[in-house]
């Protein structure tokens, strides 16, 4: 029997890798942002899993609170990025930064 904490901690590590890859590889900024959200929740999952390492005492509330804060901050970042992206799309009809699709910046 594998402790849930370990299992979800490893899952979080995997999600970080998947999210990071998408974040770095995509030229499309919305996909990049979506991947960033996957990356973020992977970080939180790792963090939260660590808080469940001693189930017999109960979960550690501090990481939970921090994760809630983190989720809100992550949303704030995404919201600003999306608003900027929409402006960029309207102004240039592209959803990528010029240098990432081989145009001069």
């Amino acid at each position: 029997m594998i402790p849930s904490a370990t299992l979800f901690g490893l899952a979080g590590a995997a999600l970080v890798g998947i999210g990071l890859y998408g974040f770095l590889a995509h030229a499309h900024l919305l996909r990049r942002l979506l991947s960033f959200n996957v990356l973020g929740s992977g970080v939180f999952l790792m963090f939260g899993a660590a808080a469940w390492r001693s189930p017999w005492i109960g979960a550690d509330a501090v990481p939970h609170a921090l994760i809630i804060t983190g989720i809100v901050v992550k949303l704030a970042g995404s919201a600003l990025a999306i608003a900027l992206l929409v402006q960029l799309a309207r102004a240039t009809r592209r959803a990528a930064l010029p240098e990432d699709e081989g145009r001069p910046p």
């Binding site: 990071l20 974040f23 770095l24 590889a25 030229a27 990049r32 930064l97 240098e99 990432d100 001069p104 910046p105």
Partner: peptide, 15 residues
Amino acid sequence: EAALLPWRRGGLLAA
């Protein structure tokens, strides 16, 4: 400078 700008290169380097 232009070669350093694309995101993928920077990201790969960071990782």
